[in-house]
Amino acid sequence: MTEPAIRIAEAVFRWRAAQAPTLDIPALTVAAGEQVFINGPSGSGKTTLLNLLGGVSVPQSGTVEVLGRVLTALTGAARDAFRGDHVGFIFQQFNLVPYLDVVENVLLPCRFSALRRARAGEAAGGSEAEARRLLGHMGLAGGVIDGHRVSELSVGQQQRVAAARALIGRPDLVIADEPTSSLDADAQAAFIDLLFAAIQATGASLVFVSHDRRLEGRFGRSLALAEINRAPRTPAGASDP
């Protein structure tokens, strides 16, 4: 793929018209297949950036381009569909839908995206086998997967299920938001190892946002959101509604 995974140009986002911008990014490019660490402490506009990349919000001015598609030119429904087709998300915690079992959670994106359903179905044995294969990559064997409610899994196991979900149907971009912050140091290292291996297997780009700079050494490129965001920093916790 020659298109960059992400290209942001002169994007300015305000929660309310009269307010100072929360996010003001002159330029940000992530190449296809690249793994980028973005250091984003709270108050740096991290949530807003994730919502822009996912197409949940659009900037008032400037453009956000993901995988060559100009999100700012799409309708809300088209952005939702695009996200479902091409982007996998992993959040800090409470990543799973409590009333679905492990495999169903992994297959969740296939309910909303025909593309990812088709891609997952291409795998040998169909989409459920693909889900189990991805879970296996993340170190979760059948004993953990079956017969347990997701709430019975440890936080580390839940994060691995979330990673498998983000990877099902081979999305082109994976965005992880503090995925290791709820894990202890050993679990963090293990999780990152597994994530890297799985991402490399699919060839997806990875944007990893965290305030924990100990992890940045493992990435090819590291950025500080505070540096690429020209908007004034707001006090922690008061940045977004």
Partner: peptide, 10 residues
């Protein structure tokens, strides 16, 4: 929020 992240519309 999870459902939205996997492509659900409001």
């Amino acid at each position: 929020a999870i459902l939205r992240s996997v492509g659900a519309r409001p």
